[in-house]
Computed example of a mutant assay.
Amino acid sequence: MTGLDDIDRAIVRMLARDAAQSAGAVGRSLGLSQPAAWRRIRKLEQAGVLRGRRLRLNAESLGFGVTVFLGVKLATRGRVSLEDFERAVSAIPEVQRVEHVLGRYDYRLRVVARDIPDFERVLRRRVMTLPGVGEVEANVLLSEERRPGPL
C-alpha cells in the first residue's frame, strides 16, 4: 500500500483503541456504510497495515503477579545458532516476548510468573538450561504507566 488517506488513518486509530469494533461501528463513526468500512479494513489487512486483532489479557488477574525483563547474552555464538535459542526460548510458556536486540545483551525477554519463587523456578529450570545461555540480567517490573499502542 503506497499511502494512507485520512479515512484509512482514522480506521487504524479506531481499531488500535478497540480492535473488537465491527465494520458497521467503524463506518458509522466515520460516515461510511458498513460495506465501505469493511472493504477499507480488508484492504488495510491485505496490505499488511493491520496484522490481526489481539486480545490483551490482564496477567495479574490471571494470577501472574510478577513481570521480569531478562537481558540474555549468549555464551558462544559459534556453537549455538540464534534460531536454536529463539526456538527453545519461545517454547517456554512464561516467556511472553522475545526480542533480538543490539547492545550489551543479545536478547531481551519479557517473563511473567506467579511470584518471585515461581520466577526463580522459571529462571533456573527453564531459561538457564537453554542452549548457549551465558550471562543473564533480571529487572523486575514495578509499574507500567503506558502499554504499547499504535505508532
Rank of each mutant, 00 (worst) to 15 (best):
Y105F: 08
G78Y: 01
D115F: 09
R53A: 11
V66F: 08
D106A: 04
G78T: 03
L130K: 03
N139F: 15
H100Y: 04
M14P: 01
L57C: 15
L142K: 01
D18I: 01
R114V: 14
R28D: 04
A59R: 09
V49D: 11
V98D: 07
V112T: 12
L74V: 14
V140H: 10
R56W: 12
E144W: 02
A36E: 03
E145I: 07
A19P: 02
S90C: 11
R125M: 13
A36F: 07
D115M: 04
Q21K: 06
D84E: 15
E86F: 05
G78K: 12
L130E: 06
T129A: 13
F64Y: 13
L57Y: 14
L44Y: 12
A75F: 08
R40L: 01
V122S: 08
G71I: 03
L55P: 03
Y107D: 08
Y105A: 12
R114L: 06
V12H: 07
M128R: 10
V140Y: 09
L74E: 08
E135P: 00
Q34L: 00
I11G: 13
L50Y: 05
L82I: 01
V89S: 07
A138R: 01
L57F: 15
Q96A: 05
V49N: 09
Y105L: 03
R56G: 02
A37Q: 15
V12L: 07
L15P: 03
